[in-house]
């Protein structure tokens, strides 16, 4: 037998005729049957669903009560010292513990993250905060801190004036954890008062502009900037001027609104260089850089010697009788020089 089953010819049978028929080709009776079949299918599924639900209910009823009780809740563990602080600044876990002031029995389940977040934000040093609960008992606090750009003496409540720090956005805050040496390098603000509200809420108007001015100035000439002790914003709003007082007592007037701060700093440097050999630094009273392309420098003149007691001028009773008897006018205290 040479033929195998695989090579045998296969004749098609009547069972190969497809029996699918489209509904439109059906007679009225056929459509009725089709509808009934669909209903029967739906009914069968519904019956199965009902039976399944009933079986579920029966099993639930027959099960012992303990078996259907909900699982016991995980034991609530106190947070205790499991505080985690993630910051970009100087605040530490001690500050966090003080600020949150969590009771010893506090657990992650019974704390209010929103309330704790408000506590963290109070004081103004924290710009943004996020409280995250890591079960079972770790509380994680992520904060972003403000960086001070100046200092200010202000009264908090009825107490004596005290030192506060001012951030770039004008927020006044107490400033905790900062290095004192770094704080000492910050200039004092003058000529401006914070809005009421206390630390964290009080604001310094125009601080954004002043902060930009200080940052640029320190960038352009770090040595000059180190001599600046007080920055007055008194005339910033009205005249657009910022007055700086150096540790030598010199008042320097800037006009940063002109947009040529670099030029002003350069002129200041040039003026100081020119007068360095002529006038002692403590004799320079004022340098006004608010004029365009020039600087007005006011220098203290040496004090004239006091008049001798026998001098005619010492007779004031008759000093106004005749002009010839008037004393000579005093020498001017200031000498102005204009440097182009």
């Amino acid at each position: 037998m040479s033929k195998t089953a695989a090579t045998l010819p296969i004749a098609r049978t009547w069972r190969d005729i497809p029996q699918q028929v489209k509904p439109r080709a059906m007679s009225r009776e056929g459509k009725r049957r089709s509808t009934l079949r669909g209903l029967r299918l739906v009914g069968g599924l519904a019956a199965l669903a009902i039976l399944g639900t009933a079986a579920w209910e029966v099993v639930a009823v027959l099960q012992p009560a303990g078996a259907t009780a909900p699982l016991p809740a995980a034991r609530a563990l106190p947070i205790g010292d499991n505080l985690e602080l993630v910051t970009d600044g100087v605040l530490d876990r001690a500050w966090l513990r003080r600020t949150l002031a969590l009771p010893a029995s506090a657990t992650l389940a019974n704390i209010e993250p929103a309330t704790l977040r408000l506590r963290v934000l109070t004081g103004g040093q924290v710009l943004a905060a996020e409280i995250v609960r890591h079960f079972p008992q770790t509380l994680s606090v992520h904060i972003a801190e403000r960086t001070p750009v100046a200092r200010i003496m202000a009264e908090s409540g009825a107490g004596a004036p005290q030192e506060f720090l001012v951030a770039r956005d004008g927020v006044v805050f107490a400033g905790q954890g900062f290095d004192p040496e770094m704080v000492k390098t910050l200039p004092w603000l003058d000529g401006v008062s914070p809005t009421p509200g206390g630390p964290g809420k009080a604001l310094i108007a125009g601080m954004e502009e002043a902060a930009s001015f200080l940052a640029d100035a320190s960038l352009y000439s770090r040595d000059l900037y180190r001599t600046w002790k007080v920055v007055s914003l008194a005339r910033l709003a009205s005249d657009g001027q910022i007055e700086v007082r150096t540790d030598a007592g010199t008042r320097i007037i800037f006009r940063p609104k002109d947009g040529n701060l670099y030029s002003q700093v350069a002129r200041l440097d040039s003026v100081l260089d020119k007068v360095a050999g002529v006038v002692p630094a403590d004799k320079i009273r004022k340098i006004d850089l608010s004029f365009e392309n020039r600087a007005l420098v006011a220098i203290d003149q040496p004090t004239p010697p006091p008049p001798t007691p026998g001098h005619k001028a010492a007779k004031p009773a008759h000093s106004a009788s005749t002009p010839s008897e008037l004393p000579p006018p005093p020498a001017p205290a200031l000498q102005f020089k204009i440097y182009p």
Binding site: W14, I17, Q20, V21, A25, E29, G30, R33, S34
Partner: peptide, 20 residues
């Protein structure tokens, strides 16, 4: 054996009534 079309015609008459 028979002709496919004639066989199919007979079957389709029954299928038109939605019967197998």
């Amino acid at each position: 054996h028979g002709q496919e079309q004639r066989l199919a015609d007979m079957i389709h008459v029954i299928r038109g009534c939605n019967l197998e």
